[in-house]
């Protein structure tokens, strides 16, 4: 079991953890929508979004190191796609950075994607690290997402850990035999591993299915939903929707002055 990095803190008790998953799903989704549609020059609004998220992070009692490490997952994409922009885009005035010239418009686009993607990924981490995935899926089912999709999601999530374990066992076996992934043609070895993983998974799926049928499975899973949408939930949704909205309007007003 070395995959505990995948979902380590969703069991941690906190006020955020106890909220109905529906409130967190809807509230944080609207928050992300508000964030990505904010014009990039409303700097005050982005600062307010960050403050709100840090407040929620404090409430969630998540270790900040863990959160920071997970926010970094967006970094490669920003680096690959957007870092060169200030040097290629034209317009918006230009600044000199040693021998390189940097365009103002390109810088604004870089700021735009870097700020929005970081803030959004933090919001999703706040959602996923304070909600066990099973409860998230139950919330989705309560929100009338088709049952076939929600049961597929929860099975997929369950099996991910089983298969990751299997894949890691295979990788350890391969590496202990001196494999170094250095050349492209060694992808063949990875191919054989993936094939073995597929066959083992599929045959495991067949066995699980037979076992479920033997226990009376008829296509639907009974659900116990331990949450209710009360005052705390309404307060949370109002906070994560109205506060950013207010910040956005205020920031727009400041810009117009």
């Amino acid at each position: 079991m070395q995959h505990s990095f995948l979902d380590s803190y969703s069991g941690l008790d906190s006020p955020l953890r106890r909220l109905d998953p529906r409130a967190k799903l809807a509230g944080l989704f609207i928050f992300v929508l508000l964030c990505v549609t904010t014009p990039p020059n409303l700097y005050v609004a982005f600062a307010a979004y960050l403050v709100l998220e840090l407040m929620l992070l404090f409430l969630s009692r998540l270790p900040w190191r863990h959160v920071a490490a997970r926010v970094l997952v967006v970094l490669p994409f920003i680096l690959a796609v957007a870092l060169f922009l200030p040097f290629f885009k034209k317009g918006g005035g230009s600044y000199n950075l040693g021998p390189l010239s940097v365009s103002g418009h390109g810088l604004l686009v870089l700021w735009n994607v870097a700020a929005k993607s970081t803030l959004s990924v933090l919001a999703v981490i706040l959602l996923s690290s304070t909600t066990p995935f099973a409860d998230l899926v139950k919330g989705m089912r309560k929100m009338r997402v088709p049952e076939l999709l929600t049961s597929l999601l929860s099975f997929t999530y369950r099996y991910i850990f089983v298969l990751t374990d299997e894949a890691q066992r295979m990788r350890r076996a391969r590496d202990s035999r001196g494999w170094k992934g250095r050349w492209l043609w060694q992808a063949r070895t990875v191919g054989h591993m993936v094939a073995t993983l597929f066959l083992r998974s599929y045959e495991r799926g067949e066995r699980v299915y037979a076992a479920m049928l033997a226990r009376g499975y008829d296509g639907s899973l009974p659900m116990v939903y331990g949450y209710s949408f009360g005052d705390a939930e309404w307060a949370f949704v109002c906070l994560v929707v109205l506060a950013p909205l207010a910040a956005r309007v205020l920031s727009y007003g400041l810009l117009a002055v």
Partner: peptide, 12 residues
Amino acid sequence: KRVPLLALCAAF
């Protein structure tokens, strides 16, 4: 009913 098989393919 063969939900587990499809889900296993996704997890795979």
